[in-house]
Amino acid sequence: MSVETRRTLTVVIPSYRRLDRLNDIADRYLDQGADEVVIVLDGPHPGWESALPEREGVLVRELPENRGLALARIAGLEASSGEIVLAVDDDVEPGPGLVDRHRRFHTGGDTVLQGYMPVTVPRPRGRDQAPTYLYARDYETQVDGWRRGDSSTILNSLWGGNVSLPRDLYLRAEQVKPSERLEYNEDLDLGIRLLRLDATASFDEQARSSHHHSRGLDAYLRECFARGGAVADLEKRWGERPAQLTPTVTIPAGYNPVLGWVQRRIAARDSDGLVQSAVIVVYRLSGIMQNWRLQDASARLLRRALIMRGYRLARRA
Rank of each mutant, 00 (worst) to 15 (best):
R7W: 04
L9R: 08
T10R: 01
V11I: 12
V12G: 09
I13R: 02
I13V: 06
L19E: 02
L19S: 11
L19R: 09
I25M: 11
A26G: 00
A26H: 05
Y29R: 07
D31G: 08
D31N: 10
D31T: 07
A34N: 03
D35H: 11
V37F: 01
H45D: 12
H45T: 08
P46C: 00
L52F: 12
V58L: 03
L59A: 13
V60H: 00
E65A: 14
N66L: 13
A72I: 01
I74E: 05
A75W: 05
E83N: 04
V85T: 08
A87F: 05
V88H: 05
D91L: 10
V92A: 13
E93T: 09
E93Y: 10
G97K: 06
L98M: 10
V99I: 02
R101H: 06
H102Y: 05
H102P: 01
R103V: 00
F105R: 13
T107G: 15
T107E: 14
D110I: 09
T111P: 02
V112E: 03
V112T: 01
V112C: 08
T120E: 12
R125I: 09
D128F: 01
Q129Y: 14
A130K: 03
A130F: 03
A130S: 13
A130E: 07
E140H: 11
D144E: 12
G145N: 14
D150F: 15
S151P: 10
S152C: 15
I154E: 00
S157F: 15
G160P: 06
G160Y: 11
G161D: 02
N162G: 13
N162W: 14
S164C: 01
P166C: 03
R167M: 11
A173Q: 06
E174P: 07
E174F: 07
E174K: 02
S179V: 15
S179K: 06
E180Y: 08
R181W: 06
E183D: 15
D187A: 05
L190D: 00
G191P: 06
I192C: 10
L194G: 00
L195Y: 01
R196W: 14
D198M: 11
A201R: 05
Q206H: 12
Q206L: 12
A207K: 01
R208G: 13
S214Y: 15
G216S: 08
L217E: 00
R222Y: 14
E223A: 13
A226R: 15
G228I: 02
A230P: 03
V231L: 14
E235L: 07
K236R: 14
G239N: 07
P242Q: 12
Q244S: 09
L245D: 05
T248K: 12
I251G: 02
P252V: 00
P252H: 13
Y255F: 14
P257V: 04
L259G: 03
W261C: 09
Q263A: 13
A268L: 07
S277V: 07
A278H: 05
R284A: 05
G287Y: 00
I288P: 12
R293S: 12
R293V: 14
L294H: 11
A297L: 12
S298E: 06
L301D: 05
L302N: 04
R303Y: 14
R303V: 12
A305F: 03
L306G: 06
M308V: 03
R312T: 04
R312D: 02
R312K: 13
R315W: 09
